[in-house]
C-alpha cells in the first residue's frame, strides 16, 4: 500500500524531471515565426497571437520570484495583476477561439501560481517538490503534538462561543507564524528534511484554520 503510494509519487516526479522548466519554445501556432523561450505568457512578435502556456512551467519563474521560501508578497501581487491584465479571457472575447482557449489556460495557471506561492504551506510543499523531496506520508505518532491538535479540534467542535473562537484564532495564528519562521530557517539552512517535518505540522493548523473560518460564518 505504502509502496503503491510511493510508486505513484515517483512516477509523477519522473514525469516532471523529464520536462525541464525551460524547453525551447515551439514556433508561433498562427504564423510559424520562431519564438524566444519565455517564462510568462508570450505573444508572437510578428502576428501578436497569444501562445499556449508551456507544459509544467516553473511557478517561481512564471511569477518572477527567486526560487526561495522567502518571497515578497507585494511584488508577487503586482506580478499577478500585471499578468492577469495581459491574458485575462475578458480581453480575448473578439479573438479566435484558439486564443480564447489559451487565455483561459494562462489565466488559470497564473491563479494557481499565485495561490501556491502566496501561502507558506503550499509554497513550502512546492519547493520540496521542485527539490525532489517526497512529501510526508507516514502516519504521525508524536503524542504531545497530536494531543494539542486534538484538543483544539475538540474545542472547535463544541457549540460556538465568540470568546472561545477568538482565543483559538489567536492560538492558531501564533502557531502558524512560529512554524513559518522555523520553516524559513530550515530552508535557509537547506535542511529539507526538517522543512518537510515542519510543513507537515503546518498542515494540521491549516485544517484548523479552515474549520475555524467555516465556524465563524453566521449560519
Amino acid at each position: 500500500m505504502r509502496a503503491a503510494l510511493r510508486r505513484s509519487w515517483l512516477v509523477r516526479r519522473a514525469l516532471r524531471e523529464a520536462a525541464p522548466g525551460r524547453a525551447p519554445a515551439p514556433p508561433c501556432w498562427s504564423c510559424g515565426v520562431a519564438l524566444p523561450s519565455s517564462d510568462g505568457p508570450c505573444f508572437c512578435p510578428a502576428c501578436q497571437a497569444l501562445q499556449p502556456p508551456a507544459p509544467r512551467p516553473d511557478l517561481f519563474r512564471l511569477m518572477d520570484c527567486d526560487r526561495s521560501f522567502r518571497i515578497d508578497a507585494e511584488q508577487l501581487q503586482r506580478r499577478f495583476r500585471s499578468l492577469q491584465q495581459a491574458v485575462h479571457p475578458d480581453r480575448f472575447g473578439q479573438r479566435p477561439p484558439k486564443e480564447q482557449y489559451y487565455s483561459e489556460q494562462h489565466s488559470s495557471l497564473i491563479n494557481k501560481a499565485y495561490k501556491t506561492l502566496l501561502s507558506p504551506l503550499s509554497r513550502g510543499l512546492y519547493l520540496l517538490e521542485l527539490r525532489g523531496v517526497e512529501p510526508a506520508q507516514e502516519t504521525d505518532c508524536d503524542a504531545t503534538f497530536l494531543t494539542e491538535i486534538m484538543e483544539i479540534n475538540e474545542k472547535l467542535a463544541e457549540p460556538k462561543s465568540e470568546d472561545v473562537l477568538e482565543e483559538i484564532e489567536t492560538l492558531i495564528k501564533v502557531k502558524q507564524e512560529e512554524l513559518t519562521r522555523e520553516v524559513t530557517a530550515a530552508f535557509e539552512r537547506d535542511d529539507l528534511q526538517e522543512a518537510k517535518k515542519l510543513l507537515a505540522k503546518m498542515k494540521y493548523f491549516a485544517n484548523l484554520e479552515d474549520k475555524l473560518k467555516a465556524k465563524k460564518i453566521p449560519s
Binding site: P135, Q137, T139, D140, C141, L146, N153, K203, F205
Partner: peptide, 29 residues
C-alpha cells in the same frame, strides 16, 4: 492510539479497554 496523517492533517484517536461493555470509543477530525 493517537495518530495523524501529515498529508491531509486529519487526526484520529482510538481507545481500547478490557470488556466489551465499555466499548472502544474513537474521535476523528
Amino acid at each position: 492510539g493517537l495518530v495523524g496523517a501529515p498529508a491531509c492533517g486529519d487526526v484520529m484517536k482510538l481507545q481500547v479497554t478490557l470488556g466489551t461493555h465499555r466499548g472502544r470509543p474513537f474521535k476523528t477530525f
